[in-house]
Nucleic acid binder design. Sequence first.
DNA 1: TTGTACGCGTTATCAC
DNA 2: GTGATAACGCGTACAA
Lengths: 323, 323
Amino acid sequence: MQDESFGSERTRQLVLRVASELGWVPNGAAQGLASRRTGVVGLLFPDLGLPAAAEEESPLYVDQVIRGAERTAASMGMAVLIAAVKASGGKSLAYSVAGKVDGMVIMSRSLSDKDIATISRTIPAVLLANKPGSHSYDNVSVDNRTGVRDVTSHLIAHHFHTSLAFVAGPHGSPDSLERFRGFCEAVGAAGLPVPEAPSAEGNFTEVGGGKAMHRLIEQGELPRAIVFGNDEMAIGALKVLQDSSLRVPEDVAITGFDDIAVARHLHPPLTTVRQPMRELGEQAVSLLLARIQDPRASRKSVYLSTELVVRASCGCETPRTNE
Amino acid sequence: MQDESFGSERTRQLVLRVASELGWVPNGAAQGLASRRTGVVGLLFPDLGLPAAAEEESPLYVDQVIRGAERTAASMGMAVLIAAVKASGGKSLAYSVAGKVDGMVIMSRSLSDKDIATISRTIPAVLLANKPGSHSYDNVSVDNRTGVRDVTSHLIAHHFHTSLAFVAGPHGSPDSLERFRGFCEAVGAAGLPVPEAPSAEGNFTEVGGGKAMHRLIEQGELPRAIVFGNDEMAIGALKVLQDSSLRVPEDVAITGFDDIAVARHLHPPLTTVRQPMRELGEQAVSLLLARIQDPRASRKSVYLSTELVVRASCGCETPRTNE
DNA sequence: TTGTACGCGTTATCAC
DNA sequence: GTGATAACGCGTACAA
């Protein structure tokens, strides 16, 4: 099947034709067993275990990564085996996947460090969006810190805000932590007081963002600008603000992170930091394929840069143009 | 590995522990070859080959189906192998996938009837959102016709519109065709003139919808209500209408189909037909697993019903409540 | 209960 | 260049 040089080209074609007419399909298991390569890459992502409704709104993030991964895998003739892994156990699926693929991409918060270590002893693994500094593996992540630093600086330098707040995602999320650091850097660089901790936490969800906003409002002393750790929390907060008759951006400016599809359709359109989610998946698979080819090359870390997307929620004018 | 009854339970635990300490992972290929089941289900979806930018906005549909499929597959301990198939050839990936799975879910427009037939001779296949009536396979689809009939009737009965238009998706899309039929049924039932063909086509994309809208405007005789074949086209049209200083819904009412996440964030929020995309994926995998268990059971077709989601773009009041 | 040999469908190696 | 044959790693049936 894989030998391209055959005696008689005619015979080859004939066999191939008959084979397809007969509906013959090569057995992948046998191929894999004999050739020691499956032609499949695995992709593990976290199953947040959210109620279906919430999940439906949210996880554009993972979806885009999957798309990117599928895309570059396909360009190399490989398929992608996906599996959501619950934080609470259920790792057996992960191991099962590990036995069926040539390598895997492991998204952050889907597997414990120990399990990653175990698996990576059998097949190569690339970490996606994990805490920076884990140099034991190939790694691809986005420059969260610079991204948030950029929006925050924009709020300060361009709109002259001096009372700012940051709303974080779930505890322990490397992404959220880095974003908070970026916020602190920008605030510090402007000579403003640097907070010890985020002003609130919203779990990266819309409802969480709404609740966080409520808390901030009830505390009094509403900040003039709020940097949210992601877009969804900003969306939830936006609703709460509107219901509280607080105007955005006149009374309080808000920004997000991710630039999910809804962001530009909000009123006002959300100023945010664009994250190349799809490219994240693409790069991860690229790294993985490279490592499969050369298992003993030096570890690589890829940082993808973000892009500030200025719309109206920060206080900038939005020209009423189309796109 | 699969024999739960062992002589000495202690020994069993010991072996398992050592195995995991050694980082041993069972070889899926060998398991598959010996047991004749891979523990993997395949999912083929169409690669529309759109530019990345357009794709990023759009394919919520496929993503949700993937999620649903992954979800129920995981509940049965199975992983999902996904592959995007370009309409233009590239079917080799599809066949490769077919050799690696216990069965596949094939989304409409991803594979030719002939290829489906060939593959299904080797492994069970379930068709997703294909033309109704293909009773040769297990089939799951959404009740497009009733869905559009419902919105259209709403426009007629509730808002007393008599000049309506339908904007279709790509030529040859079974979904689009069924939705047009639903439109015609509603229009006919109300005693209004039934059109021969859709008033315009928008390829199911946002830009396509915008262009279609332009065409309708330039034709003069703007209909008072426009039923779009999906949400994205409605979004594109909405922008064009606003740029043309036409008010929605005062000057023209519009509706969509799918209820993608952006729909409720638009201004005005889009009245649309909710399609249980995720459940589509779930049901497809359920059918597939059932067929794998009993390959000679009778064919099954599952129709999922839609739900009319009334918001403001049709002319209804939207109470300014929060969800 | 425990051990052993065979088969799964393909690739790869080695004589010819 | 061509054609046999031994792995590949795990289930499983059968013998001990």
